[in-house]
Amino acid sequence: MTTLLTVKNLKTSYMTGQGEVQSVRGVDFAIQQGEVIGLVGESGSGKSVTAKSIMGLIQPPGRIMDGQVLFHDTDLLSIPEKELRKIRGNRISMIFQDPMTSLNPVIRVGKQLTEVIMRHQKVGKSEARKQAIQLLRDVGIPSPEERIDQYPHEFSGGMRQRVMIAMALSCKPELLIADEPTTALDVTIQAQILKLMQQLQKHTNTAIMLITHDLGVVAQVCSKVVVMYGGLIMEEGAVEEIFENPLHPYTQGLLKSIPKSVTGTRERLEAIEGTPPDMLAPPSGCPFMERCPFAGSICSKMPTYRQTETGHRSLCWIGQDVQGNDTKPRKED
């Protein structure tokens, strides 16, 4: 399988009046061609900042402090903005959480879609309109010949999100980054949008990086999971391994907070006690230490990754044979 995107030691901060907010503190992962990867974690973990860093969308007071983002062999962090624009929106596209803030409310949907196609594919207005109608049809919008001339406010939330997906796919990108694409939608529409993304991925072989806080969504559509917390990757592995044998206490806590759908059973959901770390002064050790039920004094030092033969890795001292490891043994479920 061909490696499409490689992120190495990515560090992104925001300079505020109170000091430097270290949103992403050294992130490494890769995405293979045609792969669907889930980037999960609670609010403030660094998921969206990672995505914006990849896309070159970090604006002041934000600043990328270090790292590389290799798209094939091109470092997106070192090329001129003019070169980046040729890739962004063309070979790499992004769907944002709220389509109403991404679509211009005073411009017809068709005009917004055809402008993207004309800019990146270098085709005329007539051909761009024809492609736009077909894209709207592909994403399940009824009567696309009529809907193409309507304004965003004439579409429902789910339909606006479908328009954003059509726009993102208009140039047949190699990588689609979807930042919480179903958060503002009801459960039925969420399922439809996720099914649509799965179908389009299979049809086009586009790699997808799905950013979400919902592990249930990840279980439905992803093949690999990257769990973030405190600006770092806590755990990474195949979906089956993460769900069946989570290695990091934070991942275990996230999984225990998912409602079970087994008929006839009633289980109390478990919350993760405590609050996330202050990224103005992040801890020098494990960022999850203060909330972890298994933490020992060794956790005040930053752990190294513990990795299995399958590539399943966890940033945790638990299970590591090192001197002074006083972490509490975890009870196996």
Rank of each mutant, 00 (worst) to 15 (best):
68 Q>E: 14
78 S>C: 11
85 R>N: 11
91 R>N: 12
88 R>E: 10
83 E>D: 15
67 G>L: 04
93 S>Y: 06
92 I>R: 01
64 I>L: 02
70 L>C: 09
80 P>C: 12
93 S>C: 09
84 L>N: 12
66 D>I: 00
69 V>I: 11
76 L>S: 07
76 L>N: 04
83 E>H: 08
92 I>K: 05
96 F>Q: 06
91 R>W: 01
72 H>K: 14
83 E>W: 07
85 R>C: 08
87 I>P: 04
100 M>R: 02
71 F>P: 00
66 D>C: 00
82 K>W: 02
78 S>E: 14
75 D>I: 10
97 Q>L: 02
92 I>Y: 08
75 D>F: 11
83 E>G: 10
80 P>R: 08
63 R>N: 06
80 P>D: 12
80 P>V: 14
96 F>S: 01
90 N>R: 13
85 R>K: 14
98 D>L: 01
62 G>I: 05
98 D>P: 04
93 S>N: 09
71 F>G: 03
87 I>S: 08
100 M>W: 13
82 K>G: 07
66 D>P: 01
93 S>I: 10
98 D>M: 10
74 T>F: 08
73 D>K: 15
95 I>N: 00
75 D>P: 12
72 H>N: 15
96 F>N: 00
72 H>M: 13
90 N>A: 10
97 Q>R: 05
97 Q>D: 09
81 E>H: 13
95 I>Y: 06
82 K>S: 14
84 L>S: 02
86 K>L: 14
70 L>T: 00
72 H>F: 15
88 R>A: 11
88 R>W: 15
93 S>W: 12
80 P>K: 11
87 I>E: 04
86 K>D: 13
81 E>F: 12
79 I>H: 05
92 I>S: 06
81 E>N: 04
90 N>Q: 15
63 R>T: 01
92 I>T: 03
64 I>K: 07
69 V>R: 05
94 M>L: 10
73 D>E: 15
78 S>A: 15
